[in-house]
């Protein structure tokens, strides 16, 4: 044990973490608790009047068909986008983890889109998908295929927005996987080559096991990010058609700032938080179970 470790802890040491704790408490813990508190109230933003209603907001949410739909939409959005994020960014990283100008150019290109603002991305895609005149409809027509109502069909709109989201921010998970790939020592691949491992065996027995932690990390990050999906949907479909793309965050936003019922909105926020916590815990638990099972 080091000399520092042996020394008794002193209250004065807390001063070193105080600035962070203070900011963290003021900007995260306090709003979180305040949110829980407000969710037990009927709080009107316009009059700023607030009445204790207990669990009434939650009961109302339970019966609210729109809310049930937005929860379903959000879960569906996450269920579509997160696996694609993991698989596609991993595939891209595997394909582009090599020296050379082309790979460099492609890495930069894929990452580039993540830098664009959401307004720019949605503008570009709305133009590309514009019925009759957009790039994609024209392409389909030229190929003799029927035009697809990608943003106007209830069954297609959510999928379309999910794919556009993947296109937009695939760069970051790809970079995470690339950096994880570069941590794998070259000697391991040389040993595998001397061991007659095929490319498939090398991928499944050497590369992927080494990436396990990165895969979990990317899945968790995307899970958390995609549960909070909002601006691209607001700008592309505004939640339509027929609420089929409306996510939880948009519901919260509309309840709070358009209906001005803050209590109801914060209650919905707590539900979103709970769903995310369940999702994240499940993922961590699955990972721990795997480790325990193999050791």
């Amino acid at each position: 044990m080091s000399a520092v470790g042996l020394r008794a802890s002193r209250p004065a040491y807390a001063l070193f973490v105080l600035p962070f704790v203070a900011l963290y408490a003021a900007l995260l813990i306090w709003p979180l608790l305040k949110g829980v508190f407000i969710s037990f109230h009927d709080h009107d933003l316009l009059s700023n009047e607030s009445f204790w209603v207990g669990l009434a907001n939650y009961a109302e949410l339970w019966d609210d068909e729109v809310f049930r739909q937005v929860v379903g939409n959000t879960i569906r959005f996450v269920a579509i986008s997160t696996p694609i994020f993991v698989i596609l960014s991993l595939s891209l990283a595997l394909a582009l983890n090599r020296p050379g100008k082309l790979a460099f150019l492609l890495r930069a290109t894929f990452f580039c889109a993540s830098v664009f603002s959401v307004t720019l991305v949605t503008l570009v895609w709305k133009l590309a998908l514009m019925p009759g005149r957009g790039l994609l409809p024209q392409l389909l027509t030229a190929l003799g295929l029927p035009e697809l109502p990608l943003l106007t069909d209830e069954n297609l709109a959510l999928l379309t927005v999910a794919l556009i989201t993947v296109w937009w921010i695939i760069g970051l998970p790809m970079i995470l996987f690339l950096s994880a790939l570069q941590q794998i020592p070259a000697e391991l691949y040389e040993a595998a080559a001397l061991d007659n491992a095929s490319r498939w065996r090398t991928l499944t027995r050497v590369t992927l096991p080494s990436l396990k932690r990165a895969i979990v990390l990317v899945a968790l990050i995307e899970l958390i990010r995609q549960f909070q999906v909002f601006p691209q949907i607001l700008l592309m479909t505004n939640g339509g058609p027929n609420n089929s793309t409306r996510p939880i965050v948009q519901f919260i936003y509309e309840q709070a700032f358009m209906q001005l019922s803050l209590g109801y909105a914060t209650a919905a926020s707590q539900v979103l938080l709970a769903i995310m916590l369940v999702g994240v815990s499940a993922q961590i638990w699955i990972e721990r179970d795997k480790k325990g099972g193999r050791a």
Binding site: P185, E187, E190, A192, A193, L194, A197, R205, P209, S210
Partner: peptide, 28 residues
């Protein structure tokens, strides 16, 4: 490399970290 009828011992061992010793030996 795999078809030269040779085996190599590396400076940094290059053992497969996710496999047991037995699987390391059996892999090739």
């Amino acid at each position: 490399p795999g078809q030269r009828n040779l085996a190599m011992v590396f400076q940094h061992y290059a053992l497969y970290p996710h496999m047991s010793v037995r699987d390391n030996l059996a892999f090739g």
